[in-house]
Write a protein that binds this DNA or RNA. Structure first.
Lengths: 334, 334
DNA sequence: TTGTATGCGTTATCAT
DNA sequence: ATGATAACGCATACAA
């Protein structure tokens, strides 16, 4: 049913207002060079014709599309959507649009998207992934489009990023548990071969144990993939083989909720029988029962900062501060 | 640091391969009309130059951008992100990209976005909102871009939509409670003046009560805005003024989790002391403690269908079936 | 099978 | 203050 009345162009406006397209363009863009009278004529024509500028034509000549691409491992996770929220907000405030791409943690899709975004001439790309493989990094270099990494970083290339210090944050989380009297502390970790969010958080866990003179035990750590299902499964396994544990550090909120769920199923009260601390402090931490104590990452801020860096052409690595949001999932051990 | 080596164009390739740009274009688009030899020469040049097509130039001539716009009231809600997931997946499978727009339930922003999307020449728009005001609807008509509404509909215009029957679904949810012996059933409703998701679900609630010969009581219904904070507050109010209630129907999962949270704070066990049924069946229903029984909407499917309708130019209203996903938040009342 | 030429809607340069 | 006109990178109708 799409009506096929041709959309009026700048030419139509020019003809109707009896001026050149150049003048219309100037008026449209608030540039100097015309009298009040002509401006009014042109504006009248624009209003009367219901003229809408064509951003693709403009993009062609200006070589800028005012559009950025966003690569996410999965749009549906709470972390990703809060990040996207920050990105979109900042983009919009600078008159940019954001194209979302769900890589699904799939290398092929990621490569496809990188190409599509390049073809669409986006002005920049925000890349979040559980981790960057050499392949993408290489492609990213080749594409000649500015990129900012969020919550990850490249080990090989100099690509700007914004993240928090995962190891330090994990260290703080586990220390928080220790300070409350816990000694038998388990960990539900993220993806095992993720060099950043995976490895570093485990490192922080070990380091905190070390510093407190607690022996690290391999069987006190169970791996998931940052998400609920596997996190819960990891918790089940962990609780099975080490029921003496009094607290668990989960490498993501989703997995923390997974351990709450696993604990609930076996009748363990939180925090009476088991304490749990999450990581991210997404909205779901607040909504959990009981409300989840968690390491707070400024997720939306990270997204906003990333697009600001893109737009301003800043080429740096920035690490943002974290904190711990206290709620009701961690108890004291006398 | 952006290297300023000019991106090779179709002309460069043509020159290098000693053919015309027309031939390069044909090869690039898999059209007939060239010999193997020339194709190989051209392909070699393309590979060697690292040529990337320019989608904006192509968009200009073809008047199609292979891009759709998505208007969401808030990217961060679980409902929205699952919907976006479906939309993005389907779009990508048809070689389309999706631009996300966070309207923030703000009329001005919505209007802005509608304009931006029109300027960017998107091939279609998926619109979700808590409800459509006349203003947007009018603008939407004027813009001359195909639109599909998700989970809402227009009362005034003939705009294609995909949704489920809110009233019937709410009816089913409340009937489910009644069947399990509940008679004093409260409701935590959504936005009061939302004519679709708000009003219709309340209607279904009342209708189910009616059918079961249970008197409707105005004080058994408390309004939120579909989200956690207000949902929880509504539950607190409801529980304060009607502690005799044995079950609550929440108009969204988020609000259902809010009532779980409110119940937890006052030591009410779920489902022993209070049953609750949610609406949407987003991922958070599964993650709740206890796992939430909820009306299931095929959210991702709705998103996928919406973009398919856009792409295929279908101009209809479709209502999808719902179901009830049983988990552990509803108990029997003897 | 291949090339020429024109146009898509704008911006921008150079005149006037 | 205003107008011609040449790009921008590509697709396509028409020739050859």
């Amino acid at each position: 049913m799409a009506s096929n009345k041709r959309t009026p162009t700048i030419k139509d406006i020019a003809r109707i207002a009896n001026v050149s397209t150049a003048t219309v363009s100037r008026i449209l863009n608030g540039q100097p060079g015309y009298g009040d009278a002509t401006r009014e004529r042109v504006e009248a024509a624009i209003a009367q014709q219901g003229y809408t500028r064509n951003a693709v034509a403009r993009g062609l000549v200006q070589k800028r599309t005012h559009t950025i691409g966003v690569l996410l491992p999965s749009v549906t996770s709470q972390f990703a959507s809060e990040l996207l929220g920050g990105i979109e907000t900042e983009a919009h405030s600078h008159q940019y649009s954001a194209i979302v791409c769900n890589t699904d943690r799939n290398g092929e899709r990621t490569a496809e998207y990188l190409n599509v975004l390049a073809e669409k001439q986006v002005d920049g790309i925000v890349f979040t992934s559980e981790f960057l493989t050499d392949e993408y990094e290489h492609l990213a270099e080749r594409l000649n489009v500015p990129i900012v990494l969020v919550s990850t970083m490249s080990e090989r290339y100099q690509i700007p990023y914004v993240r928090v210090d995962d190891q330090k944050a994990a260290f703080a989380a586990v220390s928080y548990l220790v300070e409350r009297g816990h000694r038998r502390i388990g960990m539900v970790a993220g993806t095992e071969n993720d060099p950043i969010a995976g490895k570093l958080r485990v490192n922080g866990y070990r380091e905190a144990l070390d510093t407190s003179g607690i022996d690290f035990r391999q069987d006190y750590i169970s791996y998931g993939d940052f998400h609920f299902a596997l996190g819960k499964q990891a918790a089940v396994n962990l609780l099975d083989r080490a029921p003496e544990i009094t607290a668990i550090f989960a490498a993501s909120d989703e997995m923390a909720v997974g351990v709450i769920s696993a604990a609930w199923e076996r009748g363990l009260g939180i925090p009476e029988d088991l304490s749990v601390i999450g990581y991210d402090d997404t909205a779901m931490a607040m909504m959990a029962t009981p409300p989840l104590t968690a390491v707070h990452q400024p997720i939306a801020t990270m997204g906003r900062l990333a697009v600001r860096m893109l737009i301003e052409g800043r080429n740096e690595g920035v690490v943002l501060p974290f904190s711990i949001t206290e709620r009701s999932s961690v108890g004291n051990r006398a």
